[in-house]
Design a protein around this nucleic acid. Structure first.
Ligand code: SF4
Ligand code: SF4
Lengths: 144, 144
DNA sequence: ATGTTAAAAGAGTCTTTTGTCTTAATATGA
DNA sequence: TCATATTAAGACAAAAGACTCTTTTAACAT
């Protein structure tokens, strides 16, 4: 019972990690993997999704790695979640019913639809630069 | 990416179904399974958890089945979720970090901790009787 | 050219969740 | 007693998710 999948957690943490570095150079995935304690090969595939969706850019060869494709203030956590998760929590039902919507409500709709949009806009308002600053300060953590 | 597991969805729907019947008789699991389109044996095991946790009571043999163990106004969805899910979404982190808490916050804490408790109290305030009335009316649905 | 560093791609394994099937155990009624 | 209806329990199978390993491709340095 987790809001987002492991893949998504890893993707978010990696993106925040890259943003927290501040410099615009390419960070090797191996470094991210080591510092965050995430399996290298697994993380690689997750980050591939993010580059394919235009959120990150990659560069091969020596001194290559991964970098933000846009400015940190222009990338929201919502975009990252959407790029990694195939099904969208923000448009699915708590009860898992199909054809979910105001016209065919299930008993939890009144409550859940409100929470759902609240969480969605919350994720939409969180940008990498807002969240990564306190990480760089050492105030907030990205690991256990 | 779902807030709750399939098992939990099924458990909630079944509990609402039983509550919507109104009468205090035992409902055979087979009936619930058929009407809600849930695998009989799978549902049986989920409902066993609920009876073991004192939310439902069961009776074997002819005209046996499952019934609410307490009054419908006294059973909240939160209790049902807690009985079925082993890990508790309301105390885990979006980023999956351990030792989650105000003293060791991750970057999303400020946002997530608030949503988390909001959802928890929402589930706590939803009781079977409140939600099942409109189902009995035919206003709200429990199936696709 | 050749070797080294790094991401990309894809096959394969392990684990958890979901679902099926079979066999008990319990209650009822003829 | 015996047949029937029902939950309980547990073994098993299938699917999805999480993770590992190997090979390929790209970039750079010498
Ligand atoms: S009606 Fe609302 S609560 Fe029910 S399935 Fe649709 S979105 Fe979810
Ligand atoms: S500090 Fe908040 S956001 Fe971070 S892991 Fe704990 S609950 Fe989650």
């Amino acid at each position: 019972m987790a809001l987002i999948s492991k893949s998504c957690e890893y993707g978010l943490r990696a993106a925040l990690f890259i943003a927290a570095r501040g410099d615009n150079g390419f960070v090797p995935i191996h470094d991210i993997s080591r510092d965050l304690g995430i399996s290298f090969h697994f993380l690689t595939k997750i980050l591939q999704k993010l580059t394919q969706n235009g959120l990150l850019k990659s560069y091969r060869g020596p001194s290559g790695g991964i970098a933000l494709a846009r400015k940190a203030h222009d990338i929201s956590l919502l975009e990252i979640v959407r790029a990694i998760e195939e099904h969208d929590i923000f448009s699915t039902c708590v009860l898992g019913l199909k054809n979910c919507g105001d016209s065919t409500p299930c008993p939890l709709h009144q409550h859940w639809a409100r929470e759902r949009t609240r969480i969605e806009s919350s994720f939409g308002s969180m940008t990498l630069d807002k969240l990564s600053k306190p990480i760089a300060n050492g105030t907030l953590r990205l690991t256990d």
